[in-house]
């Protein structure tokens, strides 16, 4: 997903800086790229033309007045249009709020924070172990490296904390589908450490995936867990 997220970056850069040497050459030599850039430039031009939007809206209003309404009293029509505009505005604002509130991915973005593992003073460690490298990568936000290192560590030793940090790293990489099995594994283990954390992040992973029923079910479990995540889960459930 993160790679896909960047798929328009180069094209958008070319729209904004067509005279940059590297872009200029690519536009000259790569017809498909030039076509793509022309399309995106057209989109930008069309959408940012506020005057055209207003002119088209005015034409539609004139057409409605002339052809879709039998009322001849212009004042009544104008009054109705202004009332309608107010209603549209209110509905629009309400819809925007609803859209934001009910949007699971929005809620995920609002509530997701990377878990901070308990502080361990590793400065005295003279041997740089894979575990140390994995924690460092995670703490420094190098989640791609953290995924590789924690995955290797898990081959050697099953550890719920490794699983949790691996799952959160996947979520940071916008791949909740990879995080969910790791979190479920923690919840199915006999070892009760990190269960609450796993349940909370599992709920967030479902939100990130847009899977609302699963997210709600998981949030209810977290809410009932009487843990530090319970108030957060309650808040998200209320927002949903």
């Amino acid at each position: 997903m993160s790679e896909e997220l960047n798929k328009y970056d180069e094209v958008e850069k070319a729209v904004d800086n067509p005279s940059e040497e590297r872009i200029r050459l690519k536009l000259r030599d790569d017809a498909a790229f030039a076509k793509e850039v022309a399309f995106h430039a057209g989109l930008k031009k069309a959408i940012s033309d506020q005057g055209a939007f207003e002119f088209e809206a005015m034409l539609t209003e004139v057409e409605d007045r002339l052809y879709n309404s039998k009322k001849s009293n212009l004042r009544i029509v104008r009054w109705a249009i202004s009332i309608a505009a107010s209603i549209v505005l209110i509905i629009g604002a309400y819809t925007l709020m609803e859209w934001r509130a009910a949007d699971p991915e929005y809620l995920f973005a609002q509530h997701f924070q990377a878990y901070q593992p308990g502080h361990t003073d590793r400065s005295a460690e003279t041997v740089v172990t894979d575990e140390l490298r994995a924690f460092e990568a995670y703490e420094q936000g190098n989640y791609e490296r953290a995924i590789a290192l924690f995955s290797n560590l898990l081959i050697e030793q099953d550890n719920p904390q490794y699983r949790l940090l691996l799952a959160i790293s996947w979520m940071q990489q916008d791949q909740p589908g990879q995080a969910i099995p790791a979190l479920k594994d923690i919840l199915s283990e006999n070892d009760t450490s990190y269960q609450v954390e796993a349940a909370w992040y599992l709920a967030l992973a479902y939100l990130q995936m847009g899977e609302l029923p699963e997210a709600k079910a998981q949030l209810k479990r977290v809410e009932a867990s009487n843990s530090k995540f319970s108030p957060l889960a309650r808040q998200v459930l209320e927002e949903l």
Binding site: G42, A46, I47, F53, E56, T95, L96, W99, D103
Partner: peptide, 16 residues
Amino acid sequence: SQYRLYRKKFRELTAG
């Protein structure tokens, strides 16, 4: 004609 189509489709998107 293209730009008008782009704006028409833009109006079909959600407010957000």
